[in-house]
Write a protein that binds this DNA or RNA. Structure first.
Lengths: 124, 124
DNA sequence: AGCGTAATACGAGAGTTATCGTACGAGTCT
DNA sequence: AGACTCGTACGATAACTCTCGTATTACGCT
């Protein structure tokens, strides 16, 4: 029988608790262009995106790697739902730890993208 | 003859112009604990610190390396004055490119240092 | 000129990262 | 059950980073 709402799978993914999120790790995670792009897209399009909705210029393995880096740094939250894996920004935790930081970073990325004439987004 | 104000030496150090400063490079530069510490100290103590005024738990070579990473990312400005090298935050350029970012980053670092019970400063 | 100090350059080592390819596991649909 | 899709795991490799030690350059002072 098919549940109306596909329950989150029992497969658990390790996330650092809020207290263990380190600023350096967050900055390192966001210092990669691909990962910054993922985070920008996540912030713009909402919190319920599967990995495959991102059109990234790398293979699936590499993609998985980057998502894991973001998760282990405490930047995103990942949850299985059926065969898909939903990705969401950990806005609450990041804002709690570093008020204003995430917005400043997103604004900075937006500004740079506008200045360089490239959206940094995955496409139309 | 000794000039009253020791003129900045002719030795020039390569700095990226403001337009070439990239957010990713800045984040990468600040993702190292030692470099974040340097920047915090620079922000707190003013803009006229020599390299040797920082008491860092690494050798001079390594220190030089970190200062160069910061300079090449566009985070700091370095100028020779006699035998010393003065270091200063590029606040104007960073604020111009990414308004509010530097302050948010410094505030985040301050918060984390307070939370972890370590100042991240070099000590008395 | 000669000495001392501040910082660099260069080379080398260990560790980390980004990327890929292939093989595998979990879940859904017919 | 079988096939298909989404994502992971495991190597492997190349590039980069942090660290150091030693040799060197630039500057100020005696």
């Amino acid at each position: 029988m098919t549940p109306a709402v596909p329950a989150t799978s029992s497969r658990a993914l390790p996330h650092p608790p809020r207290e263990e999120i380190r600023l350096e790790a967050v900055l390192h995670a966001l210092s990669d262009p691909l990962r910054l792009r993922i985070v920008r897209e996540l912030a713009a399009d909402g919190d319920e995106l599967t990995c495959s909705q991102f059109v990234l210029p790398v293979t699936k393995s590499t993609s998985t790697h980057h998502f894991r880096v973001l998760r282990e740094a405490g930047v995103i939250r990942q949850v299985y739902r059926g065969t898909a894996k939903m990705n969401g920004l950990r806005r609450d935790d990041l804002d709690g730890l570093f008020p204003g930081l995430l917005d400043a970073l997103l604004a900075a990325a937006e500004r740079q993208a506008a200045r360089l004439g490239t959206t940094g987004r995955t496409g139309p």
